[in-house]
Nucleic acid binder design. Structure first.
Lengths: 196, 196, 196, 196
DNA sequence: GAGTAACCGAGACGGTACGTCCTGTCTTGGA
DNA sequence: TCCAAGACAGGACGTACCGTCTCGGTTACTC
């Protein structure tokens, strides 16, 4: 029930590190969040940092993920189409902003650094995908979406294009583009009678 | 008529570099393709290498892109649905293999290294997207696909999910999954009368 | 009658530490006798260790000194020349062995770590020098040695060369070399007619 | 004849390093001469430093050795006794000063760091011992010293005691003590009638 | 053909970050 | 009251790679 660690200072150190990392990420993106810089800014020694995280990418993922957890609240418009359209728009806007840059750097770093991948997934993907899955299940119960399509597949189709554009920059992430994507994708995901 | 470059050695040097890089990529992925290693393996000095490319990622993009150019020939099944379904399957299979790993590393590196992004786009995205766009246009002419959806949007919806999975590894890239994606996506992209 | 110390654990802790340190020294020399390693091996916490010794070198000096106290018993051949020659030979042999290595490391560490120097002196030098001094005094009483030379100076002249060789390794520490040193030192370096 | 290195910058870098190290040694002794500090002070990167020397002790040995090469010129009083007595006095005075501290640290470090030992020997021992050997040979030719004693043994007997005292600090390094040592060593320790 | 550029290999170099190691202090909770 | 257990800051270590630079030899055009 309670934090029973015999050494509660761990918590203070972790907090300091995450807080310092957030500042560094905000200032200079992932490249600025070197372990040395985090150590200097947080007052936590490198050795301690490496006791808590396997790599700097993992730290950054946790720091940025926690900070961004509530940045994109799930919409509730009453309809699956409305919810999903809005959510695609929100995620697109998030990716388009300065946070999107950091997110992309983080995702990129997770590819290179296998130790960080689980952190990235935990702090960015899992919760969000679960929320979308719940939303999808509700819509399914209401008969709004095609039962043949799984929540995971739907999520990938709706948000994969945004990731694609974020990573390669081959197309903009404007609200119009977001709507174009969600509109085209939803026509295949929703039941016919739910289509616009 | 003849090669009239005043310094044809450039060409040999470029070739050597690209060839060496391909080998290094095949052996140890992008991390193995350090500039020092490329220089050593190719016999081309670092100075010369930096005369031809802005960064190691650019070299790797060009080397890997050229090698993979013909790895995924566009299908021609006679129908838009058939072509696109098959293409999604092929790309998915490519991503799932060992080359997909390198591709992911390359895409990740392009995020970090702005100088390499154009190379990545030229050698991986542009030609392929153009080909899909052409395929899309043909389908459009035949009335198989919805005119409201642009080729770019369609491409992103079909292949973005694969990129998403490749980068995060949150879901497998099997043929079944590829079909699930293309099937669900195409229902929104194709004209009603073309749907399965 | 019984162990009546108010904190008998101290004694046990000291013993454990010294014993553990001896093992570590035997296995890997001074570099292996890390405070963490000593703590782990002895089951005595670092805090407790630092209550008893000022530094790890001090621990090692005490541990190794106690162990080696009786390793080189003073000879008693009946004559000053015989005793001193034999003693130089014994010390040389000791230095030449694997224990000599540890001894050298300890002496070296004492230079760097001022807190350990008294420990080193207590456990290695004082008793031995006192013994030699006693031997010297006996010889003096018997008229065997020059009264103009103090016991300390004689000790330095006889054993300084061994230390010199041990530390720099510029010459071997064989029995022959030991004899050459003691012989020359005991006789003097100059020709008789050149002496003051 | 001339320095024909294809990369003369090596020399500048080496010089900078040695010069910076000398300053650091003068200011804070060997502990101050960390590789990081040397790098910072000299403007030479750590990687380059490690290309030229195997360890910081080696750098310090070379830097300090070169600086001190001429610090103790060999005396020439006309007699072996005079020369050797004076030389022992000079070396003792050198050891007693602040440079002696650094010398002791260097010798101590050479024990711990095998890679540095050759540097120490080259820059401190070899030349000096060779000079003494020459002096010894001259004295031998003049019949001043015993032919049964080698130059090396004589050197060890005369200077070993100084090293011994320098390292352990068990006795002072005053001029009087130096004279006591050289006098006793040159004459021998035993009474004439006790000698073999 | 000899002269003269541009070009190239080789690799040293400064810089930056890495991840590891050990020390000596300090804290906590249990015996 | 004392201790084991071990977290922690601090700081040096030696390594890796980057991208720049300099050197001296070679090549291939020019005259």
């Amino acid at each position: 029930m309670f934090e029973q660690s015999s050494h509660p200072r761990s918590l203070k150190a972790k907090d300091s590190v995450l807080c310092a990392t957030q500042e560094l990420l905000a200032d200079g993106g992932l490249p600025a969040a070197t372990v040395d810089a985090i150590s200097a800014q947080s007052g936590v020694s490198k050795a301690t940092i490496y006791k808590h995280w396997p790599s700097r990418t993992a730290i950054a993922a946790e720091a940025f993920g926690k900070q961004m957890a509530a940045a994109i609240p799930l919409p509730d418009t009453g309809s699956a189409r409305g919810d999903l359209t809005e959510q695609v728009r929100r995620v697109s806007a998030f990716y388009a902003g300065s946070n999107g840059k950091v997110f992309a750097q983080l995702l990129a770093a997770s590819v290179t650094d296998p130790a960080a991948a689980p952190y990235f997934r935990e702090y960015f993907l899992d919760a969000r995908r679960a929320a979308i899955a719940e939303l999808w299940q509700r819509a399914l119960n209401r008969g709004e979406v095609r039962p043949s399509v799984s929540a995971g597949t739907a999520t990938d189709i709706l948000f994969g294009p945004l990731i694609f554009r974020l990573m390669t920059g081959h197309a903009p992430l404007t609200a119009e583009e977001a709507d174009a994507i969600s509109s085209a994708a939803l026509d295949g995901l929703l039941q016919d009678h739910s289509r616009a």
